[in-house]
Each structure stands twice: as C-alpha cells, then as structure tokens.
C-alpha cells in the first residue's frame, strides 16, 4: 500500500512538474526575457582595497579620523549614524578631551526643564550622535520625499559594502546616450550606475577639495570617498580588529589541539585494522 500510494503521488508530482517545465519552456520561447535597463546598465562595485582587508587587516585610525571628518562635515547634514555614541570615537584614536569637545560642539535633543518643550543641549560623551532630522517625515519633507538612510550599518547592509559606498560616491556620471527614456533620471534624481535602480535621489555629495584635513592628507574625491568608506566600515563592525586577533589565537590553538588528538587517535588505533 505504502509503495503503491507513493508511486501514484510520485507519478503525479514528477509528471506535473514536467508539464510545468514544458509550460516554462513554452513561455521562455514565446515571451523571451528582455534584459532590463537596470540589469544592463547597473555596475558592480569597483575594486578597492583597504588596510583593514584580509585576515591580518587592521583599521588605520588616521584614515578613520579623516573619514569621520568627511562624515561630520558632509554626510551628517542628511544621514544619521544612530548606533554610534561620541564615546565610541575614542576607539578611532581621539583622546578623552577631544571626544568631549566633539560632543560639546554638537547639539543633542533634550527637554526644556521649565516648559517641557523640545529643546537641545550641548552633547556629552555618552550621547549618541544626533540625527539631522527629528523623524522620518521631517527627513522626507526636506529631501524631496526621499529618506536618507542611517549609515551605521550601511557597509554590512549591502553586498561588498565598503566598495559599494566608495563606488557610489565616486560613481556619478553623465547619463549614457543609449539609456532608455523611462530609466533616465527624473526630477531630483541623479544617474549613478552603482545604485540599484540607476537613479539616486542624493546629488553627488563629495567633490575634490571639499574637506580639508589638518594633516594635509590628500583630499581629492577618491581619497575622501575611500576614507569615509573605511569610517563606515568601522561604524558597522567596530570590533573587527579584535575579532581577527581572537580568531588567530583560536585557530592556532585548535590546530595544535587537532594535531594532538590526531596523534592520540593514532596511538589508540595502532594495531587495529579498520
């Protein structure tokens, strides 16, 4: 009974799937898939390398500080970084007084003690970095109904994130002549082939020389884009250096452990054919 039932069910399942496959083939012939413009013009992120790449890579704190400066002077006008507190900046090499000063210069939301009205006060180290907008509605209203996303986890929220951010920032270009009409950027949109649907609401945010670094580091578009991508890699994965160091210790320990257990196993099994 079991086998008869199974046979009938199997015949139905396999048979109907083959019929469906026939339908699929028929549809593929009659309505061949047309490559969409999004697919044709979209580009994968550029190849870019960072000091923190690879199993031995460590964050370059000077680069992270430059990246923070780019974020603070440019990105922060529209993008929040709501997983990061001022105190976290100590991890990228700012000392206690510098962190305090950075926090103090920022205005964070608070409540007026007398009236209960929303107010602001100078920040302290334990405050999170303030958002540029009070809420999503305000953010959309100020940006032509586009929402500037929070950047804390951006490099983990996209495939090949650091390279994606770098490519997006440096990827603004002229609209190609052969781009179909319906894919051309509309009002308030900008052509960028690294963006999923080719047209992004953010205007090119960075330009050569826009931010000046105290140590005189290069401030052309590519260098700044790279610095801010590195900074956003840190905001998304602040424990990376620690993680890799622990990983090496664990790996070396386990390789020795496995070697010893293998020798022990060989001793125990010596003389036993198996």
């Amino acid at each position: 009974m079991v086998r008869l039932g199974a046979f009938l069910i199997g015949l139905f399942m396999a048979g109907w799937l083959m019929v469906s496959a026939g339908v699929t083939v028929f549809e593929m012939i009659t309505e061949p898939a047309v490559e969409t413009a999004e697919h044709k013009f979209h580009k994968h992120p550029k190849a870019v390398s960072f000091k923190h790449d690879g199993p031995f890579g460590k964050y370059d704190t000077a680069q992270l500080q430059r990246g923070y400066k780019v974020y603070a002077e440019v990105c922060a006008a529209c993008h929040s970084l709501n997983q990061i507190a001022f105190r976290n900046l100590a991890e990228i090499g700012y000392n206690e007084d510098e962190v305090k000063a950075i926090a103090k210069a920022a205005q964070v939301p608070s409540i007026n003690a007398d009236t209960g009205e929303p107010a602001t006060r100078p920040g302290i180290a334990t405050d999170k970095l303030p958002s540029p907008y009070a809420n999503e509605t305000a953010a959309r209203a100020a940006n032509n109904n586009a929402l500037p996303p929070d950047l804390s986890l951006m490099t983990k929220a996209r495939h090949n994130g650091p390279a994606y951010v770098y490519s997006l920032l440096t990827g603004y270009q002229k609209v190609p002549a052969d781009l179909p009409k319906e894919n051309r950027p509309g009002q308030g949109l900008h052509y960028n082939p690294y963006f999923a649907n080719l047209n992004i609401a953010m205007a090119a945010p960075l330009a050569d020389g826009q931010v000046t670094f105290d140590d005189g580091s290069k401030n052309d578009l590519k260098s700044m884009a790279k610095d801010v991508s590195a900074f956003l890699t840190w905001t998304a994965e602040p424990k990376m250096t620690q993680r890799k160091a622990t990983g090496w210790a664990a790996l070396i320990f386990l390789i020795i452990f496995t070697g010893l257990t293998f020798l022990s196993y060989r001793q125990i099994w010596a003389g036993q054919k198996h």
Partner: peptide, 16 residues
C-alpha cells in the same frame, strides 16, 4: 611518550 600525548590532548581540551 604515548601517555604524554593523551595527557596533552586532554589538557588542551580542558584549556579550550
């Protein structure tokens, strides 16, 4: 030597 290997393997397990 054989005992040493077993003891070492067990010790590593403990340390791990």
């Amino acid at each position: 030597r054989r005992d040493f290997i077993h003891i070492a393997a067990l010790s590593f397990t403990g340390v791990g």
